[in-house]
Amino acid sequence: MISKKVFSAPVSIFGRLLAAVYVGQFYLVYRDSKQVSALTQHFDTLVRESEVEARNAGKIIRDMFEQAQG
C-alpha cells in the first residue's frame, strides 16, 4: 500500500449553511449548500487521514512549541 499525505488550506465549517477557506490575507466564504457540503466532506477526510489523534494534539503542539523555542 502506498502511503499518502493530505494537505489543505485552513477550513472552517459553520453548520450546514456556511463554510470558509482561508487563502492568505482573506477568506473565501461559501453559502451554497453544495459547496458547504463539499467542504464538510473534505474536512471529514482531513480528520480521518490525520496522523494525530485528538486526545494527543495538545501534547504534540506543546512539543512543537518547545522545539521552536530552542
Rank of each mutant, 00 (worst) to 15 (best):
M1F: 11
I2M: 14
I2C: 13
S3P: 09
K4W: 14
K4I: 10
K5M: 11
K5D: 00
F7M: 11
F7D: 13
F7R: 10
S8C: 14
S8W: 11
S8K: 10
A9D: 07
A9G: 11
A9Q: 11
A9S: 15
P10I: 03
V11N: 00
S12G: 06
I13M: 08
F14P: 05
G15C: 06
R16E: 14
R16G: 12
L17Y: 15
L17R: 07
L17H: 11
L17Q: 13
L17D: 13
L18Y: 11
A19N: 01
A19D: 02
A20Q: 07
Y22G: 01
Y22S: 10
V23M: 05
V23F: 04
G24A: 06
G24D: 01
Q25A: 14
Q25K: 15
Q25D: 10
F26C: 13
Y27C: 10
Y27R: 14
L28M: 10
L28V: 02
V29H: 01
Y30F: 07
Y30Q: 02
D32S: 11
K34I: 14
K34R: 14
Q35C: 02
Q35K: 13
Q35F: 06
Q35T: 08
Q35V: 02
Q35M: 08
V36R: 00
L39R: 00
Q41D: 15
Q41T: 15
H42M: 11
F43P: 02
D44W: 07
T45S: 14
T45C: 11
T45Q: 15
L46R: 02
R48M: 14
R48N: 10
E49C: 02
E49P: 04
S50N: 03
E51I: 01
V52N: 10
V52F: 03
E53R: 13
E53M: 12
A54W: 14
A54Q: 07
R55I: 12
R55Q: 07
N56I: 07
N56K: 13
N56E: 06
A57Y: 06
A57K: 10
A57W: 09
G58I: 08
G58F: 10
G58W: 09
G58C: 10
G58H: 09
K59R: 15
I61R: 06
I61Q: 09
D63V: 09
D63M: 05
D63C: 10
M64D: 06
M64N: 12
M64H: 12
F65P: 00
Q67A: 06
Q67V: 01
A68P: 01
A68M: 13
Q69D: 05
Q69F: 00
Q69R: 04
G70E: 03
G70C: 04
